[in-house]
Computed example of a mutant assay.
Amino acid sequence: MRKEGIGIVLLAAAGLSLAACSGKDGAGEQAGATSAADGAMPASASLPDALDNTDGLQTVAEALKETGIEGVFREKASYTLIAPEDDAFAKLGDPAKQLTEADDHAALAALIKDHMLTGYMTPQDISAAIKASKDGKIEIPTLGGGTLTFTQAGPTVTVTAEDGTQASFDGDPVAGGSSIAIPVNGVLKKL
Score class of each variant (00 low, 15 high):
K131G: 02
L143E: 08
A102C: 06
A14V: 13
A12T: 12
L99E: 04
D103Q: 13
L51G: 04
A40T: 04
L92F: 08
A132Y: 03
A27V: 09
A83G: 03
T54R: 08
A90K: 14
N53D: 10
A61F: 06
M121I: 04
D49S: 03
L99V: 02
A12I: 12
Q30R: 09
G23I: 13
S22Q: 13
L99Y: 02
K91N: 14
D103R: 12
S22V: 13
L47W: 08
A12E: 04
T54C: 06
K97T: 06
D135M: 14
A33V: 07
E101I: 12
P141Y: 00
A129P: 00
S133V: 07
E62Q: 14
K97P: 00
P48L: 07
T122L: 01
S46N: 05
G32Q: 04
T34I: 14
A40H: 03
L99H: 02
P42I: 06
L51A: 06
S127F: 04
V60Q: 10
A27E: 04
G56C: 13
G145L: 10
L92K: 11
A33S: 12
K113H: 05
V9G: 03
E139V: 12
P42M: 07
I112L: 14
L111S: 02
G26K: 11
A36C: 01
G71M: 06
K113M: 05
D25H: 13
G39N: 07
T122G: 00
P141V: 00
G145E: 08
G146R: 03
K24P: 03
L108Q: 09
E70Y: 07
A40I: 03
L81T: 06
L64C: 08
A129N: 09
D114F: 02
I82S: 11
G144E: 01
D38L: 12
K97A: 03
A19C: 01
Q124I: 10
G15V: 02
E66C: 02
A31W: 10
L148G: 07
E66Y: 04
L16V: 15
A90D: 14
I69C: 09
A63I: 01
N53F: 08
L11M: 15
T59Q: 11
G23D: 13
I140V: 15
A90M: 14
T100P: 07
A110Y: 06
S46R: 05
A128E: 13
E101T: 15
G39S: 08
D94Y: 05
D49C: 04
G71A: 09
S133K: 04
A83K: 03
A90C: 03
Y79L: 14
L10N: 10
H105M: 11
L148R: 10
P48N: 08
A36W: 03
E29A: 12
P48K: 09
T147S: 09
A129F: 05
A90R: 14
A61V: 10
K131F: 02
L99Q: 02
